[in-house]
Design a protein around this nucleic acid. Structure first.
Lengths: 99, 99
DNA sequence: TTAACAAATGCAAATATATAAATATATTAT
DNA sequence: ATAATATATTTATATATTTGCATTTGTTAA
């Protein structure tokens, strides 16, 4: 299938995924989750110094749009990249800002 | 410089770039502009079957955020990718939708 | 300079998103 | 069952984005 022939639904799915990533705090989250790292909501909330509810909200968006997965272990929920290659997107754009 | 140490300004710039891309019509536009192709506003407006002003608006956003460049030739303005590697982002996300 | 075409801009209404405070739910230990 | 901790959800307000119509600006040819 040619990439130019994406249906409107596929374009929307791709856009939703990118939209999920396209936020300063969510990019910062993804930068911490490279190399298969797994972090809890509290760890991320402390690393980024943002509200717990805001952190949970951002993680929910990333999970809902297929960027992250999560796994509960006791009281904690660990979040991690669903597809390792999604790091490339963040790396690529982040590098564009380092000139 | 470590990618984890991006400043808030750099995170915002990266987010703005991704936000520019993260729209169904704009992804469709970028899919047409691979391999260094150059297309006019009218060509894109006809290919995508969207209003001329809407097309121009989307192209303006992509240019403003550093995704596209443009070059006027007579009555036409040609738009093209500013950095060839930005195709990777679109390819990567688009492929995620083709499973 | 006027007509015709190409592209960009101003505007308004509809829709979507971000944030944080407050509250609710889930899990574990006592 | 209660307390303590971790996470998620609800809600409200503020802000941003999308779209197309109408208009304006830029360019070429007659």
């Amino acid at each position: 299938m040619n990439i130019k022939d994406l249906t409107i639904e596929q374009l929307e799915e791709a856009a939703n995924m990118l939209k999920a990533i396209a936020h300063p705090m969510r990019i910062a989250i993804l930068n911490y989750l490279d190399d298969g790292k797994k972090l809890t909501v509290t760890e991320i909330h402390e690393l980024l110094k943002i509200e717990q509810s805001t952190t949970s909200h951002h993680l929910g968006i990333l999970k809902d749009k297929g960027v992250l997965s999560s796994k509960r272990e006791g009281k904690n929920t660990y979040y991690f990249l669903k597809h390792a290659n999604l790091s490339n997107i963040v790396n690529c754009v982040s590098k564009c800002t380092m000139n």
